[in-house]
Amino acid sequence: MKIPEELLKSAKKYHYDTFLMQGVEIPHLCVEKSKILSSFCCPGLEISAKKYSQGVKIKIVVKKGVKIEKPVFLCFGVLGKNGKQIILPEITLEENSEAKILSFCTFPKARKVFHKMEAKIKLKKKTRLIYKEIHYHGDKFGTKIETDFKIFVGQESGFESKFVLDKGSVGKLKVNLRAQLEKESFCKVLNKVIGRGKKDEIEIYDKILLNGESSSSLNKLRGVMINGGRIFFKGETEVTKKAKNARGHIDCQEIVVGENSMVQSTPIIIVKNPEARVTHEASIGKINQKELETLMSRGLSEKEAIDFVIKGMIE
């Protein structure tokens, strides 16, 4: 896998196994702006990418009954100061298949970069997908990112997603996730974000539709805003009439540090089946003073203690 040096540098910040990333037989796709740098498939996996006028269309198919042992790496980025990238992936897991996708999006020098991803993910019956997306936006607050996921989780299937942006600046970030779950399927969605400046604005909207009997979901947010930026989180879980015994939970923990920082969290729970249950818990505000005092009594400065607590929460 030929990966530009800049991209590897950002990956190292996240302790990515860059050695593994560069392995010749690692299934992957690497795109810079609209240029397809490299790709590799393995038996049972199809990856195709096509450049079009606006960006790159991608198709990933995990074939019926196939379990992809190695993680599939997707690397997207704009490595210069300015640029635009539009990625349209369609990921399908055929019946009885399994895969793990690690998607790394990096804009290390961004001053004016726009990245948009519109992903459609379809999990057919008895499948399992772990999708982890990590972002690095450099330190100039110069990105505008819009990611949109439409996910269908078929019967007896499981989808786990993790979105992480906890290093460097954020810029403007919009994450939109819609997941529909069928009978006996489950979905775990975790977003971890840290904003570090007044130019950071984070909007996350996750909507999970529990549409099948005994389907279940967990929607977690761990967010920190430091030095004047804003986080808006909306977590919605809806149980439809036919989703008997469905279970859902929304768990939101956010820390606000510094003047003018702001966090807004809105849980929305709609239950249309009397045998279903959705719960919600949230903790938003300043760092627990008892934790800070304990750490400072062990010799940490206030800043070091705050970093320690944040690291603990985000990890």
């Binding site: 627990n288 008892k290 934790e291 005092e293 304990t294 009594s297 062990r298 320690f308 607590v309 603990g312 929460m313 990890e315």
Partner: peptide, 14 residues
């Protein structure tokens, strides 16, 4: 100087 707190704080992921 070190203090062991009467009701120590918890640290979820530490």
């Amino acid at each position: 100087i070190a203090l062991a707190f009467q009701e120590p704080a918890y640290f979820e992921n530490i």
